[in-house]
Design a protein around this nucleic acid. Sequence first.
DNA 1: CAATTATTCAATAGAGTTATTGAATATGAT
DNA 2: ATCATATTCAATAACTCTATTGAATAATTG
Lengths: 214, 214
Amino acid sequence: MDKREFKDIVYNEISRISKAMSNPNRLEIIDFIANGEKCVEDIALQTGISIANASQHLQTLKRERLVKTQKKGVYVCYSLASNEVYLVWKSLRDLTLTISPYIQDTINEIREYNKFDAPITLDKIKERNDVFLLDVRPKDEYDKGHILNALSLPIDELNDRLNEIPKDKLVIAYCRGMFCSIADEAVKILHTEGYNAKKIEESVLDYQLSENDK
Amino acid sequence: MDKREFKDIVYNEISRISKAMSNPNRLEIIDFIANGEKCVEDIALQTGISIANASQHLQTLKRERLVKTQKKGVYVCYSLASNEVYLVWKSLRDLTLTISPYIQDTINEIREYNKFDAPITLDKIKERNDVFLLDVRPKDEYDKGHILNALSLPIDELNDRLNEIPKDKLVIAYCRGMFCSIADEAVKILHTEGYNAKKIEESVLDYQLSENDK
DNA sequence: CAATTATTCAATAGAGTTATTGAATATGAT
DNA sequence: ATCATATTCAATAACTCTATTGAATAATTG
């Protein structure tokens, strides 16, 4: 095997992985199942595509070993094959946020339209002990992994369980990450109830991976 | 703009960047110009594709803002737009190395065939003071950035400048990274000349980015 | 200004990607 | 076993990507 053959194989193999990640639906699937394993129908519902189409995208991800499956009765549950998959997604996301004016404009537009506060970052609240962390995702996602000391309070139960939230603290809500709107909704509810509330944009995996670096 | 519209824009925008990086030739171009700006012809020669084809790939990268250009007389020099671009490439490369058996087999095969020693890592030689670091890339790439304390000794000049290398140290050669063979050739020459030599697989940007994290 | 060289543009054919449709398969419940 | 449900498979049409070709443009040299 000469140099050229070797390089052809190597760059081709890496591009296969990149191709598997270069479709908007598949990126959304990766971002979604990073919160815990999901069955095909859930994934189809979340991303707004047909089940057959979701299945097809999942096959593509599986063929390239980016996701793994676990059969649970009649359901097939898909989850990320490893944290490295999320790391690629994260670096891609962060790069796009810095180089695409269109994505920046879109995010600013939606923030202004909804009159959202600028989100706070996890780093800034770490040393403070006057904050109360809220995981507003569904309970099963919390169980698969959550930020240290966060309370699981799924958005659907928020109105009924407000008594669990201290009025004298800064309430910090988080959800599936920066493109998920659940924490925004939670903050909206909390504001109308008189709480001092903000969201962070980090997902659980963003948090766990930054903890790993230390 | 509703949630779905927002997500469609965001994931679509990120997939555009991913698409721009999901072609073997373009990945090789990114890996290559990470060592310093290069003109279209150099890039075509390095990757073994036609000039028109290289130009077309470079347009694609430029359209997505992954590379920047600088006109130098009749030449157009392309370089990476930012280190974040390299970070995506690096995470993609590292992921593929862990999940693709084919790429692992290919690398092992070429190592066995050439009877290469297992490469040493930069971390392991950092504290040692009995090593002598050699940058065997062309001089202009060394000038654009190199590993601290390395001597620039382009592979073409190696045979004529052996007197600059101390016989009593472990000689460590590096080149453009793990898919580049220049350091392998250098080690081969050094072995026949009686030196104790090894290569490291890190590129200059791998080194600089790992230094940044500290 | 004409010639030379580096790069880009435009058109195109062949290959690959994607959403849709409806059928096929597989699991668990009745 | 039969039925309902979850998932996958297969075929397809519309669309996109890529390498090639040769022409066009732009900067430099004689």
